[in-house]
């Protein structure tokens, strides 16, 4: 079991969650952040601090964002299980679901 970061994170990457995570299992992609499904310990510290409520416990991901569960897994296909995001740094890639995302109309960065 693990927590999952869903759509609201894309192109925002606030990183309040990263500050809270006791096991450093939240990794940075190009456009979003990803929680490692095997390294996450279900402590729930990330979920309440996200300013845009992008974080969900696996079982509680809303139906229209279910595909983000798989996205959180796919991100690590190449990386494997590094054992800590700090050592890895920012990765300039995203899984297809995120990479194909149209972007936000109100996104100042767009």
């Amino acid at each position: 079991m693990a927590y999952v970061i869903a759509e609201p994170c894309i192109d925002l990457k606030d990183k309040a969650c990263v500050e809270e995570c006791p096991v450093d299992c939240i990794y940075e992609g190009r456009r979003a952040l990803y929680i490692h499904p095997d390294e996450c310990v279900d402590c729930g510290a990330c979920e309440p601090v996200c300013p845009v409520e992008a974080v969900f416990y696996e079982d509680d991901v809303p139906p229209h964002w279910q595909p983000y569960r798989q996205a959180n897994v796919e991100f690590f296909d190449v990386l494997g299980s590094p054992g800590g995001a700090c050592a890895v740094g920012s990765v300039s890639a995203d899984p297809p679901l995120v990479a194909a995302h149209a972007g936000r109309a109100d996104d100042p960065n767009r």
């Binding site: 006791p22 402590c43 729930g44 979920e47």
Partner: peptide
């Protein structure tokens, strides 16, 4: 249901 505080290091040890 695990009831330690969110962010507690105990979760990591349990896992």
């Amino acid at each position: 249901e695990v009831r330690w505080c969110p962010g507690c290091g105990d979760y990591a040890v349990l896992a």
